[in-house]
Amino acid sequence: MKEVICEAKNLVKHYPLHGTGFGSRAGVVRAVEDVSFSIARREVFALVGESGCGKSTLGRLLLRLEEPSSGHVFFEGKDLESLSAREIFQFRRRAQIIYQDPYSALNPRKKIGQLIEEPLVIHRWGSAAERREKVADLLHRVGLRPDHAERYPHEFSGGQRQRIVIARALALNPIFLVADEPVSALDVSIQAQVINLLEELQEQMKLTYLFISHDLRVVQHMAHRIGVMYLGRLVETGPKEAFFQEPLHPYAQALLSAAPVPDPKAAIRKARILLEGDVPSPIRPPSGCAFHPRCREREAICSQWVPPLRDLGSGRRVACHRR
């Protein structure tokens, strides 16, 4: 049994919408709805799904960058909600985030060395000389030169900026990283370099990743297990190999059918599944299974009851009345 490093239990996050009158409310945005899963130590757990399905919100909830409306997050067995301010400060050393956009993640008025050193200063790590040495080591670790510390963000390419963002996330020697679409803003050739870097760092530093992406090619290369989200809910989780061989949920099947085929001349090509309609609004989600208005296999029960995420064995779970 692998050691669990991070666990979400019945996580919910709603954002209130305010009406035009004083103090009035027009409803809520249901960003995350009753999500439960766990991540084992040194595992890469990938979250996939369409934009707006709640992947990034879920990642921020795990790091307590946002407070859940209900539910709990456990890190190394401790409920984050029960931690004191001092304990949360210590937790920040253990868990960090790699942001999606390296252009907006870096303060353009500060030099790279200052940006990487900032978390070390906040956590009062070492002397000034030790921090400078640490910054040089981090730059070398992510494939940059120590003298780059004296340059500003605008002097670097997108791929180099993402390496800087990764170096800053690693400054406090965390054990858990939320990588929120870390390569989506990069060219394809640069994406491969950054993905290889993340794999090397995981091996060298014994890291655990929550890897958020909508690119199934990247996920297939990086992940050990996969979770599929739709309109704030997990609809399927399981080992990578089983998912890519035979996805169980109709939405997961549609996602995989839309993934580009590496060899356009391949004799076997998956039939494309075209979904009906648009993604429903998280303000007014459908009754029952949120996917049922677009599902080819829907039955009467699908519009009446929310299917639970059932355990099917072999590490696979699916939320579907027909499975």
Rank of each mutant, 00 (worst) to 15 (best):
R124D: 12
L210M: 13
V183A: 04
P16G: 03
V279T: 15
A128Q: 14
R86Y: 00
A95V: 07
R294Q: 06
L83K: 09
S51P: 00
A169N: 05
E199R: 09
G277L: 08
K2T: 13
L275H: 10
Q114A: 15
S24K: 12
L210Q: 01
L177C: 09
S38I: 02
A179Y: 04
I273A: 04
A185D: 02
M205Q: 12
L170V: 10
R109E: 05
E117N: 11
V28P: 00
E43W: 07
E241H: 11
L186V: 09
F75Q: 04
H292R: 03
E181H: 01
P285T: 09
G23Q: 04
A185W: 06
L17M: 13
V235T: 04
K111Y: 02
L207Q: 05
K206W: 06
E297W: 14
G54H: 09
A266K: 08
E87N: 03
E50C: 02
I112H: 05
E76S: 14
S56K: 09
L231H: 02
H14L: 10
F74Q: 03
V279A: 14
G143V: 04
L61I: 07
V121L: 15
M229Y: 03
R168N: 09
L255R: 05
I164H: 09
V142G: 06
F156Y: 12
C302Y: 11
G238H: 04
R217D: 13
R60H: 12
S82A: 15
L63A: 01
A171L: 10
L63C: 03
R272A: 13
R42D: 11
G59W: 09
V142W: 05
G21R: 12
L80P: 05
P285F: 13
V165D: 02
R317G: 00
E117Q: 14
M229S: 01
P153T: 08
E276F: 07
E66M: 12
A31V: 07
P262T: 03
R217H: 11
R316V: 11
A105Y: 04
P260E: 10
L120H: 04
E7V: 05
L309H: 08
L197R: 00
F291K: 07
Y251D: 01
H123Y: 10
P16L: 08
N10P: 00
W305I: 14
P308Y: 12
H292T: 03
S56M: 08
Q204R: 15
V279N: 06
V261Y: 01
S56Y: 07
A46H: 06
C53L: 12
L106K: 10
E117S: 12
V318T: 06
N107C: 05
A171V: 05
H292F: 13
S303Q: 15
I164E: 10
G54W: 07
I175C: 14
R41I: 05
I88D: 00
L312A: 12
P146D: 11
A271N: 13
D101L: 01
H249Y: 02
V261C: 07
L172S: 12
D137L: 13
A192F: 01
A105D: 00
E299C: 04
G143C: 08
P247M: 10
D311K: 08
L172Q: 13
P262Q: 11
I175N: 11
W305T: 14
P16M: 05
L255A: 07
V44C: 15
Y230V: 02
D263M: 05
L216Q: 09
